[in-house]
Structures are given as C-alpha cells and as structure tokens.
C-alpha cells in the first residue's frame, strides 16, 4: 500500500460492468472439483478401489489359469461392483459430509460475504461433489468391467451393465446428496460423518432383516445380490426404475431441506 494513489485509481476506474449471474455458481463448482480431486480422502478412495480391484482380478485370473476354474464375468464383475460400492460409501460419506462444514473458517470471510447467494453456493457444492463422485465411480467401474471381460468368460450384456451401473449410481447419488445436506446443516464435520455412517450402514442392516426383506421388494441390498443376473440382462426394469425413483426422491428431498436450512443459518 505504499502506492495508495494506485489503489484509488483502480477503485475509481468505474464503468458499467455486465454481471454474469451464474459465474459465482461455476466458480464454486470448479473450485470444489479441483479441491476434491486434490484431497487425501479422494486419493485414498481411488487408490484403495484400484488396488482391491487389481488384486481381486489377479487372484481370479490365477484361479482360472492354474486351477482351470471357469468363471463368469457377471459373477466377477458383480463382486467387484458390490465391493466398490461398499468401500466407496465409506469414503463418499467423508467426502460429502465434510464439504461445507469443513470450510466454516473461510466460508463467511471469503465466499458468502461476496456476490453469491446461499442457494448458488449450495448448488455449486452439491453438483461438484455429485460430478466428482459419480464420474470417478463410473470410471472405476468401467476399469473393473474391462478387467472382468479380459480375464474371464464373457457373459455380461451391454444393457445389463449399463442398468447395473445406473442403479448403483443412483444409490451413490442419494448418499452424496444426503452427505452434502448434513454438511450444510452441521457445524461439526466429525459428527456429520459419524451420523451419516450410522444412518447408512444401520439403514442397510435394518432393510436386510428377514421380516423386512419379504415386504420390501427392491432394497439396495437385494439389488446388490441380484447384480449377476442384472449384468447378464435378466432384470425387472420396473423394480429397478422404482429404486432409482426412490433414490432420486430421497436426493431431491435431502437437497431441498439442506438448501433451505443452509440459507437460514448464520455463518
């Protein structure tokens, strides 16, 4: 500030400027994607899934070559998908539930005191985490599928694979949205992560109880069990569409509740 005159010149250089009203949303979106891709949670997640997938594929390939077992790609891929989803959920919860609450320090000072609305900020964050998580999940799944097809007997169909990936994607999207919503409401990242873990794994356990399994036709656990059939092209599209619809409804409700609560709270 030795050259205060210059500060004044910059401050006084006033011409009408056309404002891009969605630029703040894009700024948050892009910044968050970059930040997520550099975070240790994300890198650990990708590394863990890649290592587990490679190890499992090599083990299965060894069984085929050394023991002569004939293995179906649908079985192998469904195992990989199930494992990927279950491992991923643990990481995705941490990624999503910390996305707003972990930025409390800089949120007000650097972001929300500028020309951005709370709605835009929430949408930017939510969409960024969705894009990162689902994009990564699909890439990892395609790697697993490619490996399954290379190493073992091919019996999967293209439409079955796409349906399986889309169904799993819908479930993950619901988890991401719930995480971002909890993060927007909570002040404490650890509490948000723990609460969401308990809710998801606890919910999964409850839905898997025998007496409930008979009354719920398509639970996430049942879909995971039926993955080999879905991958081979044998699936009930209506039931899967209903599950995807429920996931979308849960996502939308969580997002709206999270957005409204966030827009009403002090930061």
């Amino acid at each position: 500030m030795k050259e205060r005159g210059k500060v004044m010149e910059v401050a006084a250089d006033k011409k009408p400027v056309s404002i891009n009203r969605w630029l703040p949303y894009w700024a948050v979106f892009q910044y968050d994607v970059g930040q997520t891709l550099r975070s240790w949670v994300y890198l650990t997640w990708v590394l863990a899934v890649l290592l587990a997938t490679t190890g499992y594929l090599l083990y299965r390939a060894g069984l085929t070559q050394e023991g002569g077992f004939v293995q179906q790609a649908s079985q192998l891929f469904s195992h990989l998908l199930q494992g990927t989803v279950l491992v991923s959920i643990a990481f995705v919860v941490v990624l999503a539930a910390g996305c707003i609450s972990s930025e409390r320090g800089t949120l007000a000072d650097s972001v929300l005191s500028r020309g951005i609305s709370r709605y835009q900020y929430f949408l930017g964050k939510w969409h960024a985490r969705l894009a990162t998580v689902l994009g990564t999940y699909f890439v990892l799944s395609l790697v697993a599928m490619g490996g399954s097809l290379i190493f073992v007997h091919e019996d999967v169909t293209v439409d079955g694979s796409l349906v399986a990936l889309a169904t799993m994607g819908a479930l993950l999207a619901a988890v991401v949205t719930a995480g971002v919503a909890v993060s927007a409401v909570s002040n404490n990242t650890l509490l948000a992560v723990a609460g969401l873990w308990v809710a998801l794994y606890g919910g999964g356990f409850v839905l898997n109880l025998k007496w409930l399994r008979s009354s719920v036709t398509t639970s996430p656990a049942q879909v995971l069990e039926r993955l080999p059939n879905i991958l081979c092209g044998f699936y009930d599209l209506q039931a899967l569409a209903s599950l995807a619809g429920w996931s979308a409804a849960v996502s939308l409700t969580a997002a709206i509740v999270g957005m409204i609560c966030f827009s009403r709270r002090d930061v």
Partner: peptide, 8 residues
C-alpha cells in the same frame, strides 16, 4: 473472489 462477484 472476482468470479464470486460475477465479473467476466
């Protein structure tokens, strides 16, 4: 910060 203000 400038993008948060919508400046092109």
């Amino acid at each position: 910060m400038a993008r948060l203000f919508g400046l092109p």
